[in-house]
Amino acid sequence: MNGVAMHIANGIVNAQVSAIFAAVAAAALAICVWRGRADLDDRLAPMAGLVAAFIFAVQMLNFQVLPGVSGHLLGGTLAVVLVGPWVGALCVSTVLIIQCLLFADGGLTALGLNITNMALVGTAAGYLLVAGLLRILPKTPRGVAITAFVASVVSVVIASQMFVIEYALGGTTELNLTTIAGTMAGAHVLIGIGEGLIAAVTVATVARVRPDLVYALRRFRKTASPVPAVPAPAVGGVA
């Protein structure tokens, strides 16, 4: 067995269910490329590369959450705040694919499961919370930090429960699912708090240094249309 395993390994979930989620992940990533192109311009593209590289780096930093249990950032919420939901999901996927192919972390068979949990579900949950919270909280470094913290905690727990669903569908060992759900949720509340702190410090720093590079500060205007992919008309937007 590997010394360093951070994602779902091969054989934990059976081949059929893994294949289904591989197909789901592939389809979702195609949609993300399609929708993300609307956001990806000459400035966002290098920024997205940096966000992926940064998430790769921080995922190496396992922090202790319980005796004998550690955790690391998943990064979905952080990516949403900095580069938006579609490109954000692609950033996390990039990291997971590179970790799988080069660093033997997260099984190749399980890649669809890992992408679904961390890049799709984690990012989607983070996005919904960020979009909601930024309608209430001020668009300041502090406001965006609080947003990132809360959204991270919730999104990490939801991502962890997505694994439980996958295990319920195709787990290879007969085990009590309620126990698994409880164990996963408990550990991931703590991991989410760690992730939330890292994400909050990161987005607050970027918001202070270069607010123009924070996607969440450009979008989610209080008067904007509910669909963020369509830029609101600049004229007449008086609150």
């Binding site: 067995m1 590997n2 010394g3 360093v4 390994a9 091969n10 054989g11 934990i12 190496m60 799988c100 192919l101 080069l102 660093f103 033997a104 972390d105 099984g107 190749l108 068979t109 295990y167 787990g171 290879t172 060992t173 085990l175 698994i180």
Partner: peptide, 19 residues
């Protein structure tokens, strides 16, 4: 436990395996 049926990683011989 869940890892009972775990299988080896296809890329375990990668020069960068396990960070």
């Amino acid at each position: 436990c869940m890892v009972q049926q775990e299988q080896d990683h296809q890329m375990k011989d990668s020069p960068l395996a396990d960070y």
